[in-house]
Amino acid sequence: MAEGKIIKALSGFYYVKSNDTIFQCRGRGVFRKNNITPLVGDNVVFTAENDREGYIMEIKERENELVRPPIANVDQAILIFSAKDPEFSPHLLDRFLVIIESYQIKPIIVITKIDLANSDELLNIKQYAKAYEKIGYDVLLTSSKNEIGLEDIYPLLENKITVFAGQSGVGKSSLLNALQPELNLETKAISKHLGRGKHTTRHVELLEIGNGLVADTPGFSSLDFSNIEAEELTYCYPEMKERFANCKFRGCLHDKEPHCAIKEAVETGEIEEFRYNHYLLFLKEIQQRKPRY
């Protein structure tokens, strides 16, 4: 039997790359019986019936796995947000960051379409970028059209599995095309009526860019915190995680409790107020969701 990595899943087939050959494989029936789904990014053991087809026999232990997009063994996530069309949304970005942090995957923020922003809008974007950099996040400002900032992305991809994710219409496929023109991925203009883009990516696939593998993933219209409990939310905010031990009360949720180190840090400007406000919104959302049985 041979070993390889699933680089694409489509219509019940799993495309496994082993050395320089790609095999079209099906999963064993026991996977379905045990409710196990092979994922893009999985390292697998497979049998080759010939030089192009085979069956996946075993899935190696995963480092991590995401549900949306369905992918495993991710090293980092590049979160793509646009400066304009659609408008930059710190609230949505923080939702993405919380989700990625909950899986202990390193996030990198890339803001695209800066060529569309006027001087005031660009100044506002740069202020947000500075706030996220203060927390410790890498933030890149780019333009696929004008090829601005692309050279800073290539080194980040070296020898890693990177998931590209973000709101629909922000230019994920355009950015990938700019990084590697021969990909020729389909792109569509944003809908002026809906204020968002159409999904141009229909499946998850690992693409070779430089010496790394990049997953172009279907866009998202919503994200929830189904895998995060209220007391875990603090750990998804790096600037809160490093301070919450100083809260007076154990299990402090940084909401109504007195002598809270997080609220004090917000008052002194050490923690950005917009980040804290989003935290409170997310906390309320988690607390109000229906119990899981």
Score class of each variant (00 low, 15 high):
residue 98 V to K: 03
residue 98 V to C: 00
residue 49 E to W: 07
residue 136 G to V: 04
residue 10 L to D: 14
residue 80 I to E: 13
residue 267 E to G: 01
residue 196 R to A: 04
residue 78 I to F: 13
residue 11 S to I: 06
residue 191 S to Y: 06
residue 6 I to W: 09
residue 76 Q to S: 07
residue 68 R to L: 12
residue 62 R to M: 06
residue 234 T to C: 14
residue 91 H to K: 11
residue 140 L to M: 10
residue 17 K to T: 09
residue 285 E to C: 07
residue 283 L to V: 06
residue 228 I to P: 09
residue 55 Y to P: 01
residue 53 E to Q: 14
residue 158 E to N: 11
residue 6 I to S: 03
residue 172 K to D: 09
residue 273 E to V: 10
residue 55 Y to S: 12
residue 161 I to C: 06
residue 247 C to R: 00
residue 16 V to G: 00
residue 56 I to S: 04
residue 1 M to L: 11
residue 243 R to D: 04
residue 43 N to T: 07
residue 121 E to S: 12
residue 194 L to C: 08
residue 268 T to D: 08
residue 121 E to T: 08
residue 165 A to F: 11
residue 152 D to G: 02
residue 49 E to H: 07
residue 87 E to K: 14
residue 55 Y to E: 13
residue 7 I to L: 12
residue 244 F to L: 10
residue 127 Q to N: 15
residue 186 E to T: 13
residue 174 S to C: 11
residue 277 N to A: 05
residue 89 S to A: 13
residue 71 I to A: 09
residue 170 V to H: 00
residue 245 A to T: 12
residue 74 V to D: 06
residue 134 K to W: 05
residue 70 P to K: 15
residue 122 L to M: 11
residue 41 G to L: 04
residue 201 T to K: 05
residue 20 D to E: 13
residue 112 T to H: 10
residue 183 L to N: 00
residue 281 L to V: 04
residue 169 G to V: 07
residue 1 M to H: 15
residue 157 L to D: 01
residue 183 L to E: 00
residue 43 N to M: 10
residue 228 I to Q: 06
residue 233 L to Q: 08
residue 201 T to M: 09
residue 119 S to N: 10
residue 172 K to Y: 05
residue 74 V to N: 01
residue 130 K to I: 05
residue 153 I to D: 00
residue 281 L to T: 12
residue 293 Y to E: 10
residue 95 R to H: 12
residue 232 E to M: 07
residue 287 Q to R: 03
residue 134 K to D: 15
residue 8 K to E: 10
residue 25 C to F: 01
residue 146 N to Q: 14
residue 41 G to E: 01
residue 101 E to R: 05
residue 135 I to Q: 03
residue 274 F to T: 05
residue 205 E to T: 12
residue 104 Q to T: 07
residue 223 L to K: 06
residue 25 C to H: 07
residue 255 D to T: 13
residue 34 N to G: 08
residue 50 N to M: 00
residue 218 P to L: 05
residue 27 G to A: 15
